[in-house]
């Protein structure tokens, strides 16, 4: 299930500030409270795909260690895509929430 939403998760992790792949994974882990613990390498093909789609821009920068690293940032269309996906997600979550609430009430009703 997580795989299907990986692009949205990566876009959300980059919404605050540009970051390199390792920092994106740390951010996903931190913000999800450790719930999203996917193979770390998985984030790189997602970053590459989102860059190809024009949602991200990237450039090589020099890290503290002196190693070169690729830093990604959201483009304008990336911000738009994130806003769209966020809206779809909220509608979906509200619909599922309503569904669960109804079934919880039905389960709590005494059977005759």
């Amino acid at each position: 299930m997580l795989k299907g939403h990986l692009d949205m998760i990566v876009l959300a992790a980059l919404a605050g500030a540009p970051a390199h792949g390792y920092a994106v994974i740390q951010e996903i882990r931190r913000r999800s409270g450790g719930a999203f613990d996917l193979p770390e390498g998985t984030v790189y093909p997602a970053l590459h795909r989102l860059e190809q789609q024009g949602f991200l821009a990237s450039r090589w920068t020099k890290g503290d260690t002196g190693r070169e690293r690729r830093t990604y940032s959201l483009t304008r269309s990336g911000r738009r895509a994130l806003a769209d996906r966020r809206a779809v997600w909220h509608r979906f979550a509200a619909a599922i929430g309503g569904l669960f609430e109804e079934s919880a009430h039905a389960a709590a009703r005494p059977h005759r």
């Binding site: 390792y22 770390e40 390498g41 998985t42 890290g63 260690t65 190693r67 690729r70």
Partner: peptide, 29 residues
């Protein structure tokens, strides 16, 4: 280049020895 930076950073954060490298590789996929 990207994977090397990631793996070295992950291994360094875990101590930087061979075991830390193995853990970083396993977590990478």
């Amino acid at each position: 280049k990207e994977a090397e930076d990631h793996l070295r950073e992950a291994a360094d954060a875990a101590g930087g020895d061979a075991e830390a490298e193995r853990c970083a590789v396993a977590a990478f996929g």
